[in-house]
């Protein structure tokens, strides 16, 4: 993609107020994750029981939790947890999905049939129940979360790439390339890959909020990121257990979760409208 196309994409994204808002929220969220050590006013895991359950004040902008930890710092570091898990797992799944999708779309038909059956089986697993089953087997933690997301997301990406590959493999320029003696690896990597990657990127960006929400949800159930590592989910759980005495905790901890999923969804919608209006609509979670 040339820089001219990039600029017009950015322009059409920003001209849509929803897409622009999404971009701003996502950039804010990424900045929070990236610069957490500089932004956070305190150490997110440092206990100070004398300061427990302090409501928001000038020293603790978002108050403190049941162990006297600074909530704002925990939330800022929570962004880091959410981003690293979401980006790693979606990226990995995207890569594997790309590979399997191209193999299914371009390889022999029997392999395609097996892969499609595999994709169908995986995508008929209810994601959250499957996640819980995997956690029972290998125990909770960050790597379990990433594994679950990768397994559950691969079919969606692979199906998209397969369809694109199937559609393109009959195209004239691919036929010409093959007639000139190009092997499958060359055709796939040099000619198909650049053409199928765009829609995949949109789909990946639209799945990031799904992962953020799954991470928070499982951490809320105490089955995701292990405490004391700050995660929006376990902050929400801490707040939930002291809902009556310290309601500010859930109110504050819910906001970044809502704003970041909104931001990514708005951005994804904007990107989709700007690039490819035919892609799927998001399903609620």
């Amino acid at each position: 993609m040339s820089s001219g196309a990039d600029r017009s994409l950015l322009r059409s994204l920003v001209s849509d107020p929803m897409g622009a808002l999404g971009l701003v929220l996502v950039l804010l969220f990424l900045a929070m994750a990236l610069f957490a050590p500089w932004l956070a006013p305190a150490d997110p895991v440092k206990l100070d029981v004398t300061q427990k359950f302090q409501p928001p004040s000038l020293t603790h902008w978002a108050g403190t939790d049941q162990l006297g930890r600074d909530l704002l710092s925990r939330i800022i570091y929570g962004a880091r947890t959410a981003v690293s898990i979401a980006v790693t797992s979606v990226g990995l799944a995207g890569l594997i999905g790309l590979l399997l999708g191209m193999i299914a779309g371009y390889g022999p038909r029997w392999l395609d049939a097996i892969l499609v059956l595999l994709f169908d089986s995986l995508s008929s697993l209810p994601m959250i129940l499957f996640a819980l089953a995997v956690i029972t087997v290998i125990g909770p933690g960050t790597s379990t979360l990433i594994l679950v997301v990768v397994i559950v997301s691969i079919p969606g990406y692979a199906r998209l790439i397969r369809a694109q590959t199937l559609g393109l493999s009959g195209a004239d320029f691919i036929q010409a390339e093959r007639a000139m003696g190009a092997g499958p690896v060359r055709v796939l990597l040099r000619h198909l890959l650049p053409n199928v990657v765009g829609p995949l990127v949109i789909l990946l960006s639209m799945d990031i909020p799904v992962v953020i929400m799954l991470e928070a949800g499982l951490s809320y159930l105490n089955l995701g990121v292990r405490p004391p590592t700050p995660s929006w989910g376990n902050i929400l759980y801490d707040g939930y257990t002291s809902l009556r005495s310290a309601p500010y905790m859930v109110l504050i901890a819910g906001l970044p979760l809502v704003l970041s999923t909104l931001g990514f969804t708005f951005l994804g919608e904007g990107l989709r409208d700007a690039l490819d209006p035919k892609l799927r609509h998001g399903v609620p979670r």
Binding site: P209, A216, T261, L262, T265, G282, R285
Partner: peptide, 16 residues
């Protein structure tokens, strides 16, 4: 779009 993207369990906690 906003309704679609808001996580159900946050809505649940706020509603509670």
């Amino acid at each position: 779009v906003s309704l679609i993207s808001v996580p159900a369990f946050v809505v649940a906690i706020y509603a509670l």
